[in-house]
């Protein structure tokens, strides 16, 4: 048995892989921040009263929902530099990580636009009206009344979106990013493809633990932010 499968390879691989989480986090974190901002714009477009803006934002979301990450990744990786060439720009030498961030920003924005939209719609209109009626400006009403309530509604979906992004991000190795998956493939290659299974299991363990941690953090966040909601309901 140990000829084919040796569990010590799992434990040896984990400490080698962990430092590369830094890259994974950097790429995922950037995509989350940029994607949330872009998603906010998309959600605003969907909720606006301008028909063509709504349609455009919905079309964008549908297209993103129907495109596999790996296809989007390569489309950006090959397509953006080719497009830029037409304008006399040379993007062939920029860091792969940039392409990864662009891809997952585009994708995460579509997810977030839906999360934000449904959270916004979940808050009764009366909340805004009441806020304005007691003399808050519309901006203050959004910031102080609507946003905190919508946040509680959006939190679980935001958490799920983050976990999904982290996992889709595992495909970044296909365009040559050396994150933990990329490093894992390097380890396997240096072993001449022997004991690949153990290294993959190590990867799976790292991702699994990571997802569980994110899930737990969001459960705690929900409890913290949800508190106000409960006292509001009971009084």
């Amino acid at each position: 048995m140990d000829k084919y499968f040796d569990a010590t390879y799992i434990w040896n691989a984990i400490p080698v892989l962990l430092p590369f989480l830094k890259i994974t986090f950097l790429v995922a974190g950037s995509s989350i921040i940029l994607g949330t901002l872009f998603g906010l714009l998309l959600a605003a477009a969907k909720l606006s009263s301008v028909k063509w803006l709504q349609k455009l934002a919905n079309l964008y979301t549908t297209i993103m929902r129907c495109t596999p990450s790996i296809v989007l990744l390569f489309l950006v990786y090959y397509g953006v530099p080719a497009l830029a060439e037409n304008f006399g720009l040379n993007l062939h030498s920029i860091d792969t990580a940039i392409f990864v961030v662009v891809t997952f920003t585009l994708q995460f924005a579509a997810i977030m636009s839906e999360v934000i939209r449904s959270a916004y719609l979940a808050i009764p209109k009366g909340q805004f009206e009441a806020a304005v009626s007691v003399g808050l400006t519309p901006f203050q009403a959004y910031r102080r009344i609507m946003f905190p309530q919508a946040l509680v509604v959006a939190l679980p979906n935001f958490g799920n979106g983050m976990i999904a992004l982290l996992q889709e991000g595992a495909l970044a190795y296909t365009i040559g990013l050396i994150d933990i998956v990329g490093k894992a493939n390097l380890i396997i290659a240096s072993n001449i493809n022997a004991h690949a299974l153990e290294v993959y299991i190590a990867l799976a363990i790292i991702y699994w633990v990571l997802s569980i941690i994110i899930e737990k953090i969001f459960t705690i966040l929900e409890k913290i932010f949800g508190k106000g909601k409960k006292t509001l309901e009971t009084t």
């Binding site: 982290l166 996992q167 595992a170 998956v181 993959y200 990571l210």
Partner: peptide, 20 residues
């Protein structure tokens, strides 16, 4: 497990463990 791990890694694991 399935929700916590990327599907590409599930593929890697199954594709290399079943032949073994």
């Amino acid at each position: 497990f399935v929700r916590g791990t990327p599907i590409i890694i599930q593929i890697f694991i199954i594709y290399s463990s079943i032949p073994l």
